[in-house]
Amino acid sequence: MSLELKNVNFTYNPGTPMQQDVLKDINVTIEKGEFLAIMGHTGSGKSTLIQHMNALVSPTSGQVLFDGQDIFAQGFDKRMLRSKVGMVFQYPEHQLFEETVFEDICFGPRNLKLSEEEVKARAEEAMKLTGVPDDFRERSPFELSGGQKRRVAIAGVLAMKPEYLILDEPTAGLDPGGRDEILDLLKELHEKSGISIILVSHSMEDIANYAQRILVLNAGRIVLSGTPREVFRHADELAGYGLSVPQAALIMHALKEKGFDVDTDANTVAEAKASILAALAKRGVTAGKAGEADA
C-alpha cells in the first residue's frame, strides 16, 4: 500500500517561450501510515508536487501510482482516488461554501454518491475526529475564527475517509496557540487513525517536532530526504535553498564549536535540554546547583 511518484517531470507551458520546468525527475514512495513533511521555499515546486498525488495536475512525463496502479491510466477512477488521497489547501476560505458547518463537511462524502445516512454518519465522525464542537453544527463556516475554519476544512476532507491526508501550509496565518492545536490534531490523526500525513510547511520547528521523514525540494528537484535528524544536519546546504534549521539545532552546533560535547542532531527544545545537561554534567558543572535552584 503506497503512493508512488516515478520519474515525474512537469513542465509549465511546454513548447512556448514561457516554458518552465517545475518538477524534475521526482522519485518518491510514500508508505501508508507515514508522517512526511515536504519543505522548500516558495516556487520550489511543492504545491505542484502534491497536486500530482491526487491527479489535480498530470505529469508531463512519468507516472504516479496509487497501490501500484497508474492514476492517469484510462478508466482510473479519479473520484475514488481523491477520496483516498485527501487534500486540504492552504486557505480554508477556498473550500468552505455551505450555509452551515455540518453541510459543508457533508459536501465531500455526498460527491462520493453515498447514501444520505452514510454521508451524515461520516460527517459526524469527522467532526468528532477533528474536535469541531457540536454547537458549531448549524453555524455559518464564514463566521468562525481562522483556526476553527481550518478544523472544519480538515473535517470536510476527513469525511471522505482518506488513507492519505495532504495539507498545504495548514498553519499559515495562525497564532502559536492555533498552530499547536492544528499540529497536535494531525499528530493524533496519524497515531490514532493511522492516516498518512503529508505536510507541506515552512516552519522547521513544526517539522522537527512532528515529521518522521522530510523531503526538501529546490528548483523542482528533491535535494535532500531523510529523518529530521539526518536532514537538519545539512544546515549550510539548507540555507542555500532559502531554508533554515530549527533554532535548537543551531544552538547545538554553536555549543559544539565552543567545545561542548553535545548531540548536534538534537533539534527540539527537549532534546537540546537533555543533551546540554548531560554535557554540563560531564564538564563537572555540578548538579548541586540544580538541587539548590529546584529547592
Binding site: Q247, V269, K273, I276, L280, V285
Partner: peptide, 15 residues
C-alpha cells in the same frame, strides 16, 4: 526556542 531552552535549563538549576 533559544529563550525557551535557556528558561528550561535555568529551571533545572543551570546558573
Amino acid at each position: 526556542q533559544v529563550t525557551e531552552l535557556a528558561y528550561e535549563l535555568k529551571k533545572s538549576g543551570v546558573d
